[in-house]
Amino acid sequence: MKKKSLATVISQKEIAPGIFDMWLKTDIAQDAGAGQFIGVFSPDKSTILPRPISICEVNKAEGALRLVYRIAGKGTAEFSKSVAGDTLEVLGVLGNGYNLEALQGKTVMLMGGGIGIPPMLELAKELFAQNEKLAAEGKDCCKSEIIIVVGYRDSQTFLKEDLEKYGRVVIASEDGSVGTKGNVMNAVAEEDLKADAICSCGPMPMLRAIKKYAEENSIPAYISLEEHMACGVGACLGCVVKTKEIDHHSHVNNARICTDGPVFLADDVEI
């Protein structure tokens, strides 16, 4: 059940220039999963629409959500100033996340670029937990092998230590200061990485390269898209992506990123 409610800031800090790490206490955490997002409203009424922010980590026991986001404009700049104890209005949980069951028994590459890295953390965590559960049930054959490929601009490798808890982390950086010089695709080539499936979030050129790579290797790639949104709940039709087939809801070649996505099978969308 989606709702607009008040969340309390547990903590917030800048973990890299312009990138903020915020934990929110909110009961919508109970419904949250990897790949989903929430709308965050700016406390300053000069911006009115919710800002779509991906979920970086879920702590159901504490009823908390972790958001790691980059300041992109006025709205994000405004709520980046919030400190522990402040409240923020949030809308959620929104969108469909990654399908973990479809990844069982596969070698999965989690590929994050820039501010597309944060949702990879919750996904890695959930896949890791799924593996533990399968092992406990004696189904070791169904476990996923987790390779996390992340691309940064420079040596500001935010979330690296968190990601390392759940799988092998391979790094690329644009300036070559850490790992492979270049992007995540350069790292895949340099390290000769192979996978049965890809889950990804990042800038559009990266997602296009992943879609092409997945097609060439005949593997599924689940990519998370972003677009300017107004309602966030599927009503306004502001955030659409072109689809290969006629969409079941719109009856044209457009799907709503906020509700049909944001995670799509790369093969289904024209990006």
Partner: peptide
């Protein structure tokens, strides 16, 4: 089909 994005 509507217009190309960005739409809002």
């Amino acid at each position: 089909p509507g217009n190309p994005t960005p739409r809002v």
